[in-house]
Write a protein that binds this DNA or RNA. Structure first.
Length: 666
RNA sequence: GCUCCCGUAGCUCAGUUGGAUAGAGCAACAGCCUUCUAAGCUGUGGGUCGCACGUUCGAGUCGUGCCGGGGGCACCA
């Protein structure tokens, strides 16, 4: 019986007693984990509410403590309950049977999940015109971790990285290549080869070029006009400019996929915007919306010639219309329009499909697929893509407004699915502290210096590039590993340094809740002490070491645990002075699945990050207070090792769910 | 103007659908390595939870108003 089963059984019992004995049915049976172990393992502050309900129904005034007494008797019947206490004005504190719990945990089967429903998660979706910066990594790590959480919670998940290969940003870089550097496709290919040979990255080159184009636009109006032409040619496709842009976008995606792989982030499918257009996905969605009358054509006013969707929730002003343009007067489709079609496809309600081909093969053989409009290019052997029961879109909170429109558009066509099934997993940006911006070599205006943070900007070339930061972390971690394990071989040291660097960065990005702006600070991000990924890894390495030692000494864990059959002695240990300590450790480790479920339910990976840190912290204390291997008493040693085993399992799984590996040694 | 988010220790942040004495990390100071790894552990100091009113047995959490900071309201995404 898992801890979740226990809680559900207790909650259900409380509900039944309330109904049968007290004739009241509260909407929700609240329960909480008491602030201290001495106050029990689960508490119901329900008596107050029941007293109120009884008073409302009958006018009879009941003492909450008397109600708690009534509940206590029923709950005490369970085998897994050791005792129930009534505390304060009417808290019902339940204490689990510690011995039974430990033995049960030891025999419990882990995770026999039924095949769950399929969901799609879109994340990363960096514009394919430059290298990824730390803000993009927040998106990717958030999405990737959420996916791991959903999978751990029993869902089948498909990961998509949407490629906006026909947008303005790609056009900007194409303009740079074509009109600033006067390069054609062959020149760019030659440049790419040259860069690769000198160990430089194409996306880094584009990063600088994009910033250069941004500056050039300010002083060169002609160039800006070129952008519109280039954008139009890219959207149209099948011309030299479109081919050039396609090469640039594809190379950038390759680079970004490579970068994200370093962070442990992977994808299943790369749906491309060009296919949404050329395979007429948009036209189909457009037709349906026209038919349903959710959009209309403006014949006059400032939006004359556009197809717009009214958006009544936002009131219009003189400066701003409340309508959202989906089709521009020149006939091109806005991103919002294209996203409606894309989301419909993701939900499996569009009734059309892409062609697919292989894009990339990871070292372990896993493949990424990409969409194609060309039936001749299409490859077979791909898994069934799209058709998610729920779709999660990991997108910056600054896009909340367009996301609302997209949702509304989808809901207009399919009311049943649209409203609930499309979830905007929003998160705040990663910004730079003024100090960090200066550290990157940017000159700040007086106004900027006074700001609490400075927004990163691809257009200005202002940002911490993902690869640069990870490189820096790996160098720092390697120095630490060198000093601790000078005799290990180079490859192993590098591997450990990499694991530590990724752990530190992922944890750093995950410990903040989604709606907190992360003001990036080098010192804090590069730290290996305190609340960091490294701290959690270190704790896991420690617990692993105990079992390594046992193996070295040819001691069998199963044989050691045989001593647990002496239930009386086990109960005595839990009842001793150290007993509560040991029990706290065990029950905290047992709360992983509950925590994962909670994190999935409220779409908040930070909950799991915090839990992991608390678990690691608790184990460090446990480790300090109880000498496990030298413990002379066989039964106590068995108890300590069983608890350590549970911690090892939970901490490893918890870290893996955060995408953080546990190094062999640290 | 409209709208969303934030305001909790010197700094950076947690705080479950309203529950018990508001917690971490960093920074500061004082301790702990013949032991299963000190990237660790222990202790000390540090709070009008922005302000006010309200709802409630109970408010950091919910409501209203105000103050302060940020985002959004493009024929960009």
């Amino acid at each position: 019986m898992t801890i979740t089963d226990i809680q559900n059984a207790l909650r259900e019992k409380v509900r039944v007693i309330a109904k049968e004995k007290l004739s009241v049915e509260p909407d929700h049976i609240a329960s909480e984990i008491p602030p201290k172990t001495e106050l029990g393992d689960l508490a119901f502050p329900i008596a107050f509410e029941l007293a109120k309900l009884i008073k409302q129904q009958t006018g009879e005034k009941q003492n909450p403590r008397a109600i708690a007494e009534e509940l206590k008797n029923g709950i005490s019947e369970f085998d897994f309950v050791d005792r129930v206490e009534i505390a304060g004005p009417g808290y019902l504190n339940v204490f689990y049977d510690r011995t039974g719990f430990l033995l049960d945990e030891n025999s419990a089967e882990t995770g026999a999940n039924e095949p769950g429903t399929k969901v799609c998660v879109e994340h990363t979706s960096v514009n394919p015109n430059k290298a990824a910066h730390i803000g993009h990594v927040r998106n990717a790590v958030l999405g990737d971790t959420f996916i791991r959480i959903l999978k751990a919670d029993g869902k089948e998940v498909e990961t998509q990285y949407y490629i906006d290969n026909t947008g303005v940003q790609v056009a900007d870089v194409a303009v740079g290549f074509m009109f600033i550097h006067n390069m054609n496709l062959d020149d760019i290919k030659a440049l790419d080869k040259e860069l690769t040979e000198s160990d430089k990255k194409f996306d880094f080159y584009c990063w600088d070029l994009y910033a250069q184009v941004g500056r050039a636009y300010q002083e060169n109006e002609e160039l800006k006009e070129k952008r519109a032409e280039v954008l139009h040619l890219i959207e149209e496709g099948d011309n030299p400019t479109a081919d050039l842009a396609d090469f640039v976008a594809t190379r950038n995606v390759e680079c970004i996929v490579e970068t994200m792989e370093r962070f442990g982030v992977r994808y299943d499918l790369l749906p491309r915007e060009s296919e949404i257009l050329h395979l007429k996905f948009w036209e189909k969605a457009f037709g349906q919306m026209k038919e349903l009358g959710v959009i209309h054509y403006e014949t006059e006013g400032k939006n004359a010639g556009c197809w717009v969707m009214p958006f009544a929730e936002h009131s219009g002003t003189d400066d701003h219309e409340s309508d959202k343009i989906l089709v521009r007067s020149n006939g091109t489709v806005t991103y919002t329009g294209k996203d409606i079609a894309y989301q419909m496809w993701k939900l499996g309600i569009l009734g059309m499909d892409f062609f697919y081909k292989r894009f990339h093969r990871y070292a372990d053989g896993k493949e990424i697929w990409v969409t194609t409009e060309n039936a001749d290019e299409a490859e077979s052997g791909f898994p069934a893509f799209g058709g998610g029961e729920t779709i999660y879109n990991v997108i910056d909170t600054r896009q909340s407004y367009p996301q609302e429109i997209v949702k509304k558009g989808v809901a207009a066509i399919d009311p049943e699915k649209g409203e609930k099934a499309s979830v905007h997993l929003s998160y705040e940006m990663v910004a730079l502290s003024p100090a960090a911006a200066e550290e990157l070599g940017f000159e700040l205006s007086e106004e900027d210096k006074g700001r609490t943070f400075i927004e990163m900007s691809g257009r200005k070339g202002l940002g911490v590039k993902a690869d640069d930061l990870l490189d820096r972390m790996e160098i720092k971690a390697l120095a630490e590993v060198e000093s601790r394990h000078p005799d290990s071989d180079e490859a192993e040291k590098k591997h450990i340094a990499h694991q530590i660097a990724v752990g530190a960065l992922r944890y750093f990005l995950l410990k903040f809740t989604r709606n907190t702006v992360i003001v990036f600070d080098f010192k804090e991000a590069l730290s290996f002490e305190g609340e960091t990924g490294c701290f959690c890894q270190y704790s896991a390495v420690r617990v692993n070491k105990i079992f390594q030692k046992l193996a070295e000494r040819d001691e069998s864990v199963a044989e050691i645990k045989a001593a647990l059959t002496d239930r009386e002695k086990v109960a005595e240990i839990f009842g001793s002075e150290a007993g509560s300590d040991i029990w706290s450790m065990l029950i905290l480790a047992a709360r992983l699945d509950e925590t994962i479920h909670n994190a999935a339910a409220v779409n908040e990976p930070a909950i799991l990050a915090k839990y992991t840190f608390n678990l690691a912290k608790a184990f460090n204390l446990f480790y300090h207070n109880h000498k496990i291997l030298p413990e002379p008493d066989a039964v106590k040693r068995a108890v300590l090792i069983s608890v350590a085993e549970k911690v090892r399992d939970s901490l490893t799984r918890s870290l893996n769910t955060l995408g953080i590996e546990v190094p062999e040694k640290m």
